[in-house]
Amino acid sequence: MSGEIITQPARRAVFLKKSTKKPRNIVERLFEFWFALCAFLSVFITAGIILILISESWPFFQQVSLAEFLTSRDWSPLFSDPHFGIQPLLMGTLLSTFIACGIAVPMGILIACGLSEFVPPHIRQFLKPIIEILAGIPSVIFGYFALLVVTPAIQVLFPELPGFSLLSAGITMSFMILPLIVSLSEDALQSVPRTLREASYALGATPLETVWKVVLPSASSGVMAACILGVSRAIGETMVVALAAGQQPNWTLNPAEPAATMTAYMVQVALGDLPHGSLGYQTVFVVGLTLLLMTLVFNYLALRVRNKMRPL
């Protein structure tokens, strides 16, 4: 028992100092090198993605000015009179993401609260693995749902809705990210100490007030991280929008219209047979670069939020 007086990190430090300095033989040294190499591979992946995207986009920007790329409202790179404005694809991505998260974030937080605070523990233990499995349904199956279930269902209510639309893609994506947001938010809510809830009830707060003013604020960093992960899933989601949102680039703010997103455009071109090095082939990488920049900005914001809102 006396050994427990030394804290674990301190003991760990002592051991690491002694044992990492002198590996016993060459085999151990080689293995150590291999482990380090594998860990650094992850950095090479990121660097590789950035390098490939920039190097394949470079020739494109020598033919098309950045001003046209950013300001033109036309994206028709494969036509005889090509236009290269990223805006329509960007709008498609933003609009479908906005719809998906507009539904999934409030629903997800509401359901997570219900699951964490009002469902008895034995039922929760049964439901939690089911929700985790639902979070793992492949996105191409959600593409099937969007095309053959959700769109016809919305058409019953609004008969004039076309067969492809951002609306049905967005709604289907919200089902897709809902289990993810619920599962991660519920983890965060569960990790709030019980004493905080008890203190709140002891002061006469109702369950709603306890959840809203005590539990959720304490778990805010985890819930926020769950929502941000959901949003980044929606931005990068490919199969649902490729199948259900349509293939035609379309600068619109109306979610009932069909419009291609950035990811849908990449799939569309990849399915065709464009020769390596042609301008059409390069546009895939240009769109990919734009998507990467969005993702990086987003991940950076997520990191800032997480560091700012450390849990209690």
């Binding site: 992946i45 590789g48 993605i49 490939i52 995207l53 992960l229 980044s232 931005i235 990068g236 989601e237 490919t238 990811t263 990449m266 799939v267 990849a270 895939v284 990488f285 990919g288 998507l291 990467l292 993702t295 987003f298 991940n299 997520a302």
Partner: peptide, 11 residues
Amino acid sequence: AAMPSILYGLL
């Protein structure tokens, strides 16, 4: 972990 899967395809 938060990178869209299609970017791995481009890599």
